[in-house]
Structures are given as structure tokens and as C-alpha cells.
Measured scan of single mutants.
Amino acid sequence: TQVHVDGVTYTFSNPEEAKKFADEMAKRKGGTWEIKDGHIHVE
């Protein structure tokens, strides 16, 4: 599962880990995350 944050791609083999990471990054940025085309995007 790929997580895209500010133009950087992080790859996780476990989708649950990817979601936890996205959640943390979104909180830090004061933003949100969503799943697009099977990838997670942090806004």
C-alpha cells in the first residue's frame, strides 16, 4: 500500500500500518487522508 505525502511516497506491505501512518501524518499536518486509486493520499 502506498502513502503519498507532500510528493514523497512511502510503501507499506500491511494496509493497516499504512492507514495508521497516514493518520499520524495527517494529524501532524492538520489535514486529512483519503484513499484514491488504491493509494492513500495525505492532504
Rank of each mutant, 00 (worst) to 15 (best):
E16Y: 10
I40H: 02
D6H: 06
T32Q: 09
G31R: 03
I35F: 12
V5I: 09
S13K: 10
H39W: 05
E16I: 10
A18I: 01
E43W: 15
V8F: 12
A26S: 06
H4Q: 05
V5S: 07
H41L: 10
G38R: 02
K36F: 08
P15I: 15
K29L: 15
E17W: 07
P15L: 15
G38E: 04
H41A: 05
Y10M: 04
Y10V: 05
E43L: 15
E24Y: 13
G30M: 04
V42N: 02
H39G: 07
V5Y: 07
Y10I: 05
G7A: 05
T9S: 08
T32L: 07
D37E: 08
M25Q: 11
D23L: 08
I35Y: 13
W33C: 11
P15W: 15
D6M: 06
H41Y: 15
A22M: 02
K19C: 14
E16S: 09
W33E: 03
A18D: 00
Q2L: 12
H39E: 11
V5D: 04
P15V: 14
A26E: 02
V5R: 01
I40Y: 13
A22L: 02
T1L: 10
V8I: 12
V8D: 09
D23M: 12
E34G: 07
E43G: 12
N14W: 07
G7T: 05
W33G: 03
N14H: 09
P15E: 13
T9N: 05
T9Q: 08
V8G: 06
P15N: 08
S13C: 14
H39Y: 07
G30A: 04
Q2I: 13
H41I: 13
V5T: 04
G7E: 06
K19E: 12
G7Y: 05
E16T: 10
P15T: 12
V8A: 11
D6L: 05
R28K: 14
V3M: 01
D6R: 05
A18N: 00
F21L: 01
D23H: 08
V42L: 07
F21T: 01
F12K: 00
A22K: 01
A18K: 00
A22S: 03
G31N: 03
R28Q: 15
M25P: 00
I40E: 02
N14M: 08
K36L: 10
P15H: 13
T32N: 09
F21Y: 06
A18V: 01
H41F: 15
K20W: 08
V5H: 05
E34W: 15
G31T: 08
N14Q: 08
K20I: 12
K27Y: 13
H39S: 09
E24W: 13
Q2A: 08
K36W: 07
G38K: 03
F21I: 01
D37A: 06
E17S: 10
S13G: 10
D23T: 13
K20E: 12
R28L: 15
Q2W: 12
T9W: 11
G31A: 05
T1G: 03
H4P: 00
W33N: 03
S13W: 10
E17Q: 10
H39F: 07
K20V: 11
H39I: 15
S13I: 10
E43H: 15
T11R: 09
K27N: 12
G31C: 09
Y10Q: 01
E34V: 15
E24N: 06
F21H: 01
V42D: 02
T9Y: 11
V8P: 00
G38S: 04
D6Q: 06
K29S: 14
E16Q: 09
K20F: 09
K36M: 09
K36C: 14
F21E: 00
H41C: 14
P15A: 11
H39N: 08
G31S: 05
M25N: 05
F12L: 03
K29G: 13
F21S: 00
V8C: 15
T32F: 14
H41E: 06
E34L: 13
E34M: 11
M25F: 06
V8Y: 13
G38M: 04
I35H: 06
K27S: 10
N14D: 14
N14A: 08
T32M: 09
F12S: 00
I40D: 02
E16R: 08
G30E: 06
K20A: 13
V8T: 10
A26G: 03
H4N: 05
G7D: 08
W33M: 06
A26P: 01
G30K: 07
T11H: 11
E16G: 08
K36A: 07
M25W: 12
T32D: 05
H39K: 07
T32R: 13
G30Q: 05
I40W: 04
N14L: 09
V5Q: 01
G30Y: 03
T9L: 08
D23P: 00
Y10E: 00
D37G: 07
G7I: 02
G38I: 03
V5W: 04
G38W: 02
I35C: 15
E16A: 09
Y10N: 01
M25V: 13
V8R: 12
V42F: 10
I40G: 01
V42C: 04
K19R: 13
E43V: 15
H41K: 06
Y10K: 03
S13M: 11
H4C: 13
T9K: 08
A22G: 03
K19T: 11
I35R: 03
M25G: 01
G30F: 04
V8W: 11
E43M: 15
I40V: 04
H41Q: 07
D6S: 07
E16P: 04
E16W: 10
K36I: 14
Q2M: 13
I40K: 01
K27G: 09
K36Y: 09
V5M: 11
T32V: 09
E34K: 10
G31I: 04
E43P: 05
K19V: 14
H4R: 06
H39T: 10
D23R: 10
Y10W: 09
H41G: 03
R28M: 15
K27W: 12
G31Q: 03
V42W: 04
K29H: 15
T1H: 08
T9H: 07
M25I: 13
W33T: 06
D6I: 03
F21A: 03
G7W: 05
I35L: 12
G31D: 04
D23Y: 08
F21D: 00
